[in-house]
């Protein structure tokens, strides 16, 4: 079955609907590229890509700290600000980032994020394991041609 970005959106929508204080959810890969994002309201213009990239960087940096200290796997990084909170959780090959208001049930956010992160990790694995459409669509003749060309190159 082909994985679409819509599946990520569905999981992110479930996260955003789970608690009243959640404003944005972003899924990024470990290099900081945005895969999907869902927002509840547009309070003000936000650079989602930038926020996601920083969240990924912060998460990966904390993960490195943990490795250096040998304190096990990192689950969630929480950044608390005067007027809001940012949570980042590992989701397999990605990082799930949740932006909330100041007053939220941190326990519920943690539970929801851990559940969603497990689902996202599974979908991401399938998504990344999928062959690109171009390669998958090659005919036998085209494959033979490619093999022959590779053989020529090896000889050369």
């Amino acid at each position: 079955m082909s994985i679409t970005v819509r599946q990520f959106d569905e999981i992110l929508s479930d996260v955003i609907k789970s608690e009243p204080g959640i404003k944005k959810t972003i899924l990024v890969d470990r290099t900081g590229l945005t895969i999907a994002h869902v927002s509840k309201f547009s309070y003000y213009p936000v650079d989602v890509d930038g926020i996601g990239a920083i969240a990924s960087a912060v998460f990966c940096a904390s993960e490195e700290q943990g490795k250096s200290l040998d304190v096990g796997d990192l689950t969630i990084v929480t950044s608390e600000f005067g007027d809001g909170k940012i949570f980042a959780a590992g989701a397999g090959k990605g990082v799930l980032c949740v932006i909330t208001d100041k007053e939220v049930n941190i326990g519920m956010i943690r539970l929801t994020m851990m559940k969603a992160a497990a689902e996202l990790a599974k979908v991401l694995d399938e998504f990344m394991a999928e062959k690109p459409a171009v390669a998958a669509g090659k005919t036998d003749a085209e494959r033979e041609e490619l093999r022959a060309a590779l053989g020529e190159l090896e000889k050369g």
């Binding site: 608690e19 939220v104 049930n105 941190i106 326990g107 519920m108 943690r110 539970l111």
Partner: peptide, 24 residues
Amino acid sequence: MEGLPISSNLNAEKTEVISALVTS
């Protein structure tokens, strides 16, 4: 009030789940 357990005589996993859900 944020759903983070302070003290419990149950195991950590159960405590975290119950605290979060009951606080909500």
